[in-house]
């Protein structure tokens, strides 16, 4: 079963997610899936401290996230899943949960990343990872906030390469 929003965003929990998406979607739960963050008490606290009380924030590693996601049976589930890069989605897929749709919400500039949109920069390796996910039948679209225009990732990748 799909979650409300399965988002790749290198900033993980921040304003765009907590205010921009969670509010209109009336979300109840945010799962931050990251092996490193889940190992660090300090980082967990940093990400969760400013989450409003009506939202349950969980920080899980890939195994825990996959297990939680495979247990979702309600078609109107109010969960947002956040991962920092496409690689993490591949790990989740390899563990047995395949999301129907992925929101590419923010991958910002760093070395070897090329610009696709103001909020999407990708390494060649990440483009390949997105292709891998698309080949699994997953739909991927870029959109930073709900009011902005959604852009199909395939269109974006093909246009540039």
């Amino acid at each position: 079963m799909d979650v409300q929003l399965f988002r790749i965003d290198d900033r993980l929990i921040h304003g765009q997610v907590v205010l921009g998406w969670a509010k209109p979607l009336k979300s109840e739960r945010i799962i931050l899936c990251d092996d490193e963050v889940s190992e660090s008490e300090w980082e967990k606290e940093l990400y969760c401290t400013c989450v409003p009380d009506h939202l349950l924030a969980l920080v899980c590693n890939v195994d825990e996230t996959t297990s939680l996601l495979t247990k979702i049976t309600h078609p109107d589930d109010r969960t947002i899943v956040l991962v920092k890069e496409p690689r993490v989605v591949m790990d989740i897929v390899n563990k047995g949960y395949v999301p129907g749709t992925i929101n590419l919400g923010g991958l910002h500039y760093s070395d070897h990343r090329k610009k696709y949109l103001s909020y999407i920069y990708l390494k060649d390796e990440e483009v390949n990872q997105l292709h891998w996910l698309l080949d699994k039948g997953i739909r991927i679209y870029c959109q930073d906030v709900p009011t902005s225009k959604a852009v199909d990732v395939l269109h974006l990748i093909n246009k540039r390469n």
């Binding site: 290198d10 991958l107 910002h108 500039y109 760093s110 070395d111 610009k115 103001s118």
Partner: peptide
């Protein structure tokens, strides 16, 4: 500004 750079950058 956080506009385009990733946080590590």
């Amino acid at each position: 500004t956080n506009l385009e750079d990733s946080l590590p950058v």
